[in-house]
Simulated assay, not measured.
Amino acid sequence: MADSSLFQSFFLIFSGAAIVATLALFGRQPLLVAYIALGVLLGPSGLAVIDNLRLLSDMSNVGIIFLLFLLGLDMQPQALVSVLRKATFVGIISCAIFLGIGFSIGQLFGFTTMESWVIGMALMFSSTIIGIKLLPTTVLHHKKLGELMVGLLLFQDFVAIVCLMILLSDSSGDMHLGQVALSFGALPLLVAFAWVVVKYLLLPLFSRFDRFHEYVFLMALGWCMGMAELAETLGLSREIGAFIAGITLAASRISQYIALNLKPLRDFFLILFFFSLGAQFKLSMLPEILVPALVTAVVVLLAKPVVFRYLLGGHSELKILAWDIGFRLGQISEFSLLIALLAFSQNLIGSEASHLIQATAILTFLVSSYIVVMNFPNPIATKDELRRD
């Protein structure tokens, strides 16, 4: 590929993203929906001005690696245990319910057993972007609502990582229990190795050279990428390795500095990820998946608030608090999109099932964000009485 072609692609993606992001903010829409829409517009199904999707897709996967690295960096062990203890029961039951619902929908519309299980996996998770970004900062950090939201989303993150391990355990498209067991067996060894390297090598180096910011930045990148590649070699996944790399550094004083400096780089690659996801969406498949996608989206939008309301009812002083959490978590997740992409790349699901999950994600992102913005306290509410920073 010529350099000019790559530059032209970046020009179209990021200049276009700046425009659609502005329109999305005026329209109170999640930015990731705008990036996906831009991908559909500029990709082969739209204006077809960008066709080098393979390179962009490969590059965008780096954003997911950074996302999981930063997720690990933000998980302080003590706080993690506290919030997870309160959310585990609700998390287990809700994940089981939505796994069953997704599997049933898949079977109803004639998908294979494996595709139905993957659809069920995709329905288990709720969007961190919508859940956290539309929560007022004071509520997020100081109130029970924020504590329960963070606990549930963290629990779902762990479940999502387990799902990624299962999906990536075998690239042949066949799920071998022996390979899955081997991957899980390699996990504690990888964690132990990471802990030893961080304690006896990385932290002393960071302490000695922390005034050289470029060095800290490069070491963090090298550690993230190195652990990602090691995990891939051990039969896990690069995403798992990056998460372990982050969480083993989380307790160090340098972790927040690293997280702050890596976020712009993560956002750069995540824009590519959501753009490439939209660009790979085949509008020609829309007639085939429209009815299943609409049914799945309606079921998610109706069932999630109800399920979380009744599961959380015993934890809340007021029933309205449980409804609030339920509606804020009433969509599927960015992880659902990642699961669809990975399962398709592993030949575990077909294009139709992958597009069903993507379409359901887009629909639930849009409708759910409107419900929250119009009815619950949030930073971008259209009504003055609901606007909370």
Results as ranks from 00 to 15, higher is better:
261 N>P: 08
45 S>W: 03
283 L>D: 08
342 L>C: 07
146 G>D: 02
102 G>F: 00
169 S>N: 11
286 L>M: 08
380 I>V: 15
181 A>Y: 15
158 F>W: 05
258 I>P: 00
134 L>F: 09
311 L>G: 12
153 L>E: 00
227 M>S: 13
367 V>K: 00
99 L>I: 12
102 G>Y: 04
244 I>T: 10
302 L>P: 13
268 F>M: 10
252 S>M: 05
364 T>H: 01
213 H>N: 14
95 C>F: 03
197 V>D: 06
3 D>Y: 12
220 A>V: 12
344 F>I: 09
337 L>G: 06
19 I>G: 12
61 N>S: 13
144 K>E: 06
90 V>M: 03
106 G>S: 07
76 Q>W: 01
31 L>C: 06
43 G>C: 06
32 L>D: 05
295 V>K: 02
124 M>L: 07
291 V>T: 07
17 A>M: 03
44 P>G: 08
92 I>V: 15
207 S>L: 03
352 E>T: 15
263 K>R: 15
124 M>T: 10
292 P>E: 03
113 T>A: 06
290 L>T: 13
253 R>P: 05
98 F>Q: 03
362 I>V: 15
13 I>S: 02
378 N>V: 10
361 A>L: 02
13 I>V: 14
293 A>R: 00
369 S>F: 02
38 L>G: 04
352 E>H: 12
240 I>W: 00
224 C>P: 11
286 L>S: 09
227 M>H: 12
382 T>A: 13
253 R>I: 02
229 E>D: 14
4 S>P: 11
187 L>M: 03
262 L>S: 05
375 N>Y: 10
72 G>H: 06
105 I>T: 05
